[in-house]
């Protein structure tokens, strides 16, 4: 299925929120100012999802195990609905993520939240990932095969 540009952006945003540290997300959210009026359509509630892998890495799916996950759906006063589905059991993180998802469907809000919340999260994630990659890269080896000579 091909998604629209908007849907892709929304997907990426929801992923960023899900991967963010709950502490940083709450901090940035509080700094953004007062919460908009909203109703909780569902949750936040914790349950599980079954994680799937593929046989051989690329074959048919199989069930690997479960993971805790928390979801929330919020409705803004204007009827916009926001969703969140985040690994772990942090209810507040899911609630905020759903609110952010709802707000970001409005262009003007998106701009404000992009600067105040999404960008800092993105920067933090990139930093964290870079450290991980670089530390792993330092353990890269070149094995030399010792040639078994004939003479």
């Amino acid at each position: 299925m091909t998604l629209t540009e908007q849907q892709n952006a929304r997907r990426a945003r929801m992923g960023l929120l899900a991967r963010s540290s709950a502490r940083q997300l709450v901090e940035l959210w509080v700094k953004l100012g007062e919460e908009p009026e909203h109703s909780l359509l569902r949750g936040p509630e914790t349950g599980s999802i079954t994680l799937r892998g593929r046989m051989g890495g690329g074959g048919a799916p199989f069930n690997l195990g479960e993971a805790t996950v928390t979801r929330a759906a919020v409705g803004l006063a204007d009827g916009t609905v926001g969703h969140a589905m985040v690994l772990g059991r942090d209810l507040e993180k899911a609630r905020i993520a759903a609110l952010v998802d709802a707000l970001c469907q409005d262009e003007r809000e998106l701009e404000r939240i992009e600067g105040g919340l999404l960008t800092p999260l993105r920067v933090a994630e990139a930093d964290c990932e870079r450290v991980r990659r670089e530390q792993t890269a330092a353990t890269k080896v070149d094995f030399f095969t010792v040639v078994r000579g004939e003479d």
Partner: peptide, 21 residues
């Protein structure tokens, strides 16, 4: 885990694009 409601199933994870350690 038996006390958790199951929300569903993930898409199969792609180990080919793993953030390698």
């Amino acid at each position: 885990r038996t006390t958790l409601p199951r929300f569903g199933y993930s898409l199969p994870v792609d180990t080919g694009t793993m953030l390698l350690e």
